[in-house]
Design a protein around this nucleic acid. Structure first.
Lengths: 137, 137
DNA sequence: ATCCTACCTTGGACATTGTCTAAGTCAAGA
DNA sequence: TCTTGACTTAGACAATGTCCAAGGTAGGAT
């Protein structure tokens, strides 16, 4: 994420304190915060940042492909900065913990032509669900 | 779904008009209604049915495995009565249409032991995204 | 350096989806 | 037919996300 701000500037985006802070919050591996978690962490650094600004910035980052939107449970969407290397997710059904994982093979190849119904398929996402070591008790 | 009501009775569930109507609405193939769509259709047959009852009944059907909960887009969850034959979903990014599809192979096998982080994995869901023939224009 | 202006941010109202509760109703066994 | 505990109801509430008008500001233009 470190050069994200430069990439934004190249796109002609105005570089504001708010956008900078949101990008900093999303920096790291295995980060999967909800919008409100991002807002809470951003507020630590920039107390007056508005919730709407966090939502706006996250949507923009998703639109340009810098961040992935992940909805594993039908609750709040989560934001994953690891958009540069394709990966899938492993979710604990009990506590909701998410890990990035890398299955072998390409799920797109597993869908026969007869099962595509004329769609132009862009991608496939795989979500593994189970119980994490902590919750196995 | 036709024998769903019998299976419910076997489980000692009270058979009410409301539950009957919800089960009827969910009867069919390629059905993926949201809770509010189920409610709207149920209201056609039983005008005074409450929203909360639809939510309750859907949750019960999911809990006993008769119906699958599908969240493809982070918006409203959808309910899929085709729970007896495992399948995956193909979603149009434009209009949201959902088709049931049957990929070959088992995605569980594609996740190496080293990528399981000690989780006990129960299942894997695959969501294919693309553009449907209608939206391709 | 300062000015301009289009773009960004803010706060709060509003929308959507889902959950909870207290009171009334009813299915099904006795 | 009676009884009773499970079910349903209406509506308040909660969680998440979107929209808007008014004010602020980044960064190019002068």
């Amino acid at each position: 994420m470190s050069d994200l701000l430069e990439r934004l500037r190249e796109r002609g985006w105005r570089l504001t304190a708010q956008r900078r802070v949101v990008a900093e919050v999303l920096d790291g591996d295995h980060v999967h915060y909800t919008a409100d978690e991002v807002h809470a962490r951003a507020t630590d650094r920039l107390p007056e940042i508005a919730r709407a600004t966090v939502y706006n910035t996250l949507s923009e980052l998703v639109a340009i492909g810098e961040v992935l939107e992940v909805s594993t449970d039908g609750r709040a969407k989560r934001y994953d900065p690891n958009a540069r290397h394709t990966h899938q997710h492993l979710v604990c059904s009990r506590c909701g913990t998410i890990r990035d994982v890398h299955p072998t093979g390409d799920p797109l190849k597993a869908l026969p032509e007869a099962e595509r119904y004329g769609f132009t398929i862009a991608d496939a996402t795989v979500t593994y669900r189970g119980t994490c070591p902590n919750c196995a008790s």
